[in-house]
Design a protein around this nucleic acid. Sequence first.
DNA 1: TCGTTGTGGATACGGTCGTATCAATACACG
DNA 2: CGTGTATTGATACGACCGTATCCACAACGA
Lengths: 207, 207
Amino acid sequence: MPKRVDHEERRAHLTAALLRIASTRGLQAVSMREVAAEAGVSLRVVQYYFTDKRTLLDSGLIELAARLDRRVKQRASAAGSGLSVRAVFDIVLGAILPGDEQSRLDALAWTAYYAVALTDPSLGADGVHFPNALEDWLTARLTVAQQDGAAPAAGDPRTEVAALLALANGLTASVLGRQRTGEEAAGILRHALDRVLADPRGRVGPG
Amino acid sequence: MPKRVDHEERRAHLTAALLRIASTRGLQAVSMREVAAEAGVSLRVVQYYFTDKRTLLDSGLIELAARLDRRVKQRASAAGSGLSVRAVFDIVLGAILPGDEQSRLDALAWTAYYAVALTDPSLGADGVHFPNALEDWLTARLTVAQQDGAAPAAGDPRTEVAALLALANGLTASVLGRQRTGEEAAGILRHALDRVLADPRGRVGPG
DNA sequence: TCGTTGTGGATACGGTCGTATCAATACACG
DNA sequence: CGTGTATTGATACGACCGTATCCACAACGA
């Protein structure tokens, strides 16, 4: 074997370059050559570690999903354990909103992928699966909370969750369009949560 | 003068072809040649009536805005005059949601434009201006209604309106992604409106 | 009728794209 | 130390892009 390079790390490097381009200049500006230039390597290297452009783009979408997952878990661990339903919703939905510059860039790239996936379902076919799973999970949480009396039974849990998720997505869009800051969006989201789930920022149980 | 052809109508025809491509195959599939083929004319004709590709794309965005405007006015006239604030919100926000197949296609095209405008602000610079104007207008309406006691003073009107607009946009996205039907989205939106503005579907005054 | 002019067909140019090919390098290992 | 293989440089190919050019034709004013 020759130079022995870490493929995993190489691909991560190139994927990061791809997302940098996608979030600043758009997905239509992403070409093999541009990714190579952004990463400071030759075109051949990009070809070598991602045989297809398709493979390259897929990698970008996977990385975006991983980053969102990381952000949720990071926020959750920062909040501790034994969280109330309200806190869980706050964490999960708040993780969707772009809070800092990096998550804003990621949301931009995500939006670009989303737009092309709407008319080219082959790319990011599970881009539909993921939101559905999240909706199911949150709905189950809210249902249990309502049955336990920990949350006001304001209405159909699935409808409430769907509305909250749609709100979070809409707020994200407005932040990306610089109509609102991330803080303003977070405030609006919390305000909406106050309506559906009282008990702001509390913990479950007697505490 | 030669054959004497209606430029206005020609351009409308080509613009419609453009939007048909954009809403079904995405904005990245829009090329001069594709628009020509979709419209059943030669490439030269597209060049002739739209000197630039830029001019062509601008025309598409303008047409989309016009269609949305037409839809709002149509819904408004169908509902009659002397509308309550609740009815006005219902009409305006409901017009954003894709109700039939055509408005769904338009929303798809709109989303495509929105995505590229996020990273290329030169296209659709007033794509930000329009939502802001709508937010201002709705906020003014809600403020007056709250002062007249026609609507419960639930909170800051601007925040309420921003949340409703974000909800409508998020619901639209979920409809486009086939997560929800247009009817379901409309139901969720109405449910949210019931919270902020009571008086469902009524008229202002003693009626 | 003739010439002027609006309309559009045919084709070409330079550029970028994704992908393929061929060779040169450089290192691990027998 | 050789050697084979993983890595990568250089370059080319065909396709499509936006745009430009040249020319044919048709109709209207004079």
